[in-house]
Nucleic acid binder design. Sequence first.
DNA 1: CCAAAAGTGTTGTTACTACACCCATGA
DNA 2: TCATGGGTGTAGTAACAACACTTTTGG
Lengths: 181, 181
Amino acid sequence: MRIDEDIDKAAIRILHDLTGLDNVFLDQLKTFGRVDRHPMGRVVTTAFYSLINQTKYNPRPASWAVKARWKSLAELHEMAFDHRELLQTALDALQSQVRQKPIGFELLPEEFTLAQIQNLYEAVLNTQFDKANFRKKILSMGVLKPLDKTEKAVRHRPARLYRFDTQRYYSLAKQGFLFEL
Amino acid sequence: MRIDEDIDKAAIRILHDLTGLDNVFLDQLKTFGRVDRHPMGRVVTTAFYSLINQTKYNPRPASWAVKARWKSLAELHEMAFDHRELLQTALDALQSQVRQKPIGFELLPEEFTLAQIQNLYEAVLNTQFDKANFRKKILSMGVLKPLDKTEKAVRHRPARLYRFDTQRYYSLAKQGFLFEL
DNA sequence: CCAAAAGTGTTGTTACTACACCCATGA
DNA sequence: TCATGGGTGTAGTAACAACACTTTTGG
């Protein structure tokens, strides 16, 4: 972080410099400050995590970060320093946040099917949901706006598309409504 | 924080130096790093919050912090710098944490009555609960160990005392059980 | 017509709410 | 014996889980 830069701004800038990404969900996670966490000396790191929709955003790694690319969790092997711990903290935070705030939609296209949300939640929470019950629950929250559109070119009945209704969510939230999957 | 000191250790030390308190619940909250948050220059603060049981711990303010004392929220007026924001962040975190982790018991004596827990939750969450339903719910979690003791010297039917069963909580938590008020 | 996934309805069970009531104690 | 809070039971309702079933598309 620069001497004349807010910490949040620094996180945005660093993510942008590394990947070219901008205007993405970014949330402060935790500050890691064990004395021995870096072999070269004292380094205190405030970690942030971001949720990025691969269909909407195209990462362009900086020249000094050419090896930056998408990896599945399974692909990750050794990580530097205590970065495995940082990652685990982020995953825990994600699992806990995704159940009480509608941040899951950050990972979906603007328009999505109910099956896509369900798959997302099943992946993030590492569980299985009953299709009928899941859609009843998520629709009953009233924050999904059904569109007059369907999927195209699938070899089965095409699914209706939905949009997350931000306006509606905030007006409900103001009245004490809790998003809770 | 000292150059050779873990950030968590620093928080423990500072709390101890200021108040004499030791071995209390202490959790990292968030790191505040706006450029303009301190008029004297750039200050980045990692805030922690602590839950302290007044009946168990006796704060002894350091000589250079003689004005340190307990204040109710209502008593708080102006606070320095962005400390009002820090406090609000802590309160929000407390409300959200207390509903999903059994940290409320940090604020109670070792042995407590069900009415005490209920009062605590009502105060923290700023709500009211039905007595019968609240006790059914909290008892059904199975993490309260009933004692063969009751209150003394009350001019009504004395209430049974309970203890939070840490062992049991951890063994349940390992099986995926979620504390949720 | 078939396979595949979308989408709906029903039924039984569990959890929650509201509220009435009894109990034990000190004054 | 009264006031006060401790403690319990029940009935109605809402939420949830399981599962069977119908619908619509492409091949």
